[in-house]
Amino acid sequence: MNHNSEHYSQETFKGLRVAITGGTSGLGLALVRELTGRGARVAFVARKQGGVERVVCQYAGTHGIVGDVSQKEDIHPIAMQVTAMLGGLDVLINNASDLGPAPLALLADTECEDLERALATNVLGPFRLTKTLLGTLASSAREGLGAVVVNISSDAAVNAYPRWGAYGASKAALLHLSRIWNEELSTEGISVLSFDPGDMDTPLHAMAVPDADRSQLGRPETAARLLTEAIGKRISVIRESFHQPCEEVVPC
């Protein structure tokens, strides 16, 4: 990325209203840090009160929300707190993920409940939260501020890795959901992106592959920076196209 577009992106993030699920560890925490550092207004969601309070203390000005995206009853309370505290929403990052069985298991050995939990967290949760926040995102789009939904994907969404069945199937569903939603929502001015951060040194990866050589894994901070830049570019493109003069100009 050249210096000019990087500079432009920095301006893009000032006051940008961003919600991140799974914001107290791994990629989610790195995104809280990266986006807050660039001047965005950030609300994040995580399941545990203690973790939420710790991150709020660490990153002043962030809004921490205790909630579990896999629980239907939590979705509207989360959405309500996000929109109340941020006064709207421009970017939603569905990052919270569930591995399925830990340690990883062959599909034939996977408990149905583990698959259900992976689907609830990785597919239904992002679907419900996005659907609930769609009115707010569409409003941002109509105002020309740009509206982007990011679903965190994985190479397990496209490759058939043995023992990654629950996770891989749920991420494949999320990937296809993102693609269809992006087609459907483009007329509303909302972009839906998938982002594969690669193998990272995170708590989720440690659960999946406890004996991995951590020195070979990517840093969540690097992935957070790449994703943030991708969001910045997309928002910039949307804002530029919104402010293009129309062919038909009617004075107000």
């Binding site: 509207h76 309500m80 929109t83 006064g87 769609l134 009115g135 707010t136 569409a138 409003s139």
Partner: peptide, 12 residues
Amino acid sequence: LWHVWTPIAGPP
């Protein structure tokens, strides 16, 4: 809440 939020619901 899901019974009473309109499809376009935004600010609470």
